[in-house]
């Protein structure tokens, strides 16, 4: 295990050290101590390494992640795992706004609650939230899946494209063009896999969720819908 003291060594040194890990490396396990809510921790990683952050992080932790597994032993500030490409990011606490925004792949797990705009414009990332999500989550979400064990805030999935949304609790309101959809066997199978990979298989069963998706009425321009855009 390689230990990096962020307070003593600084952010640039941390990220350049982690960026230097390319392809196969023997230094596969890292821990970052004294994060103290700093911004941009472990951003832009591109190697199959495990990074554990011992504390809470500020803006943009684990952004643009590829291949790496980043675990935050605390809460994460705005924009965690933004534009993730692959790999896994696990937040033990809560995540602030726009967690997993624009993510193209990989898995983001939030063990507490996520606030507003979780998964906004997601494009292939999978997101599993053990708690609740805030308003405008999955806004314009294009692909990938979002699983919420708790409740969803206002305007879930507004202007949704083809992302699949699964919510176990209540949904305060659905956004424009987002509707509840039938849960078919392939969705239950997908959910079971996501719950397992999202470290939530003991907490919830696939049958307890409802599925939400796009009514597909807005995303091809139709003049009759002009007032809804």
């Amino acid at each position: 295990m390689q230990t990096f003291d962020l307070e003593a060594q600084g952010l640039r040194a941390l990220n350049s050290t982690l960026h230097a890990l390319k392809g196969q490396t023997n230094e596969t396990a890292w821990e970052i101590i004294n994060p103290k809510g700093s911004h941009a921790i472990a951003v832009g990683l591109d190697a199959p390494v495990d990074v554990t952050v011992r504390g809470s992080t500020g803006y943009y932790c684990a952004g643009m992640n590829k291949q790496a597994t980043v675990r935050v032993k605390g809460s994460a500030g705005p924009g965690v795992a933004e534009n993730m490409m692959s790999g896994t990011v696990i937040i033990d606490g809560d995540a602030s706004q726009y967690a997993g925004a624009t993510g193209r792949g990989g898995l983001l797990v939030i063990k507490g609650n996520a606030s507003s705009r979780c998964g906004i414009s997601m494009k292939g990332i999978d997101i599993v939230v053990h708690g609740n999500i805030g308003h405008m989550s999955a806004f314009m979400a294009q692909s990938g899946s979002m699983v919420v064990l708790g409740d969803a805030g206002e305007a879930l999935g507004d202007s949704l494209y083809e992302a699949k949304l699964f919510v176990r609790g209540s949904v305060k309101s659905l956004g424009a063009d987002c509707i509840e959809k039938e849960m078919r066997p392939e969705h239950l199978e997908l959910l079971a896999d996501l719950l397992k990979r999202g470290e939530a298989d003991g907490k919830a069963k696939p049958e307890e969720f409802k599925r939400y998706g796009s009514a597909r009425k807005l995303y091809t321009f139709n003049i009759d819908n002009a007032s809804s855009y």
Partner: peptide, 10 residues
């Protein structure tokens, strides 16, 4: 305590 960011409170 209130902070715009968590790091203000560390």
């Amino acid at each position: 305590a209130f902070g715009s960011e968590y790091r203000a409170m560390v």
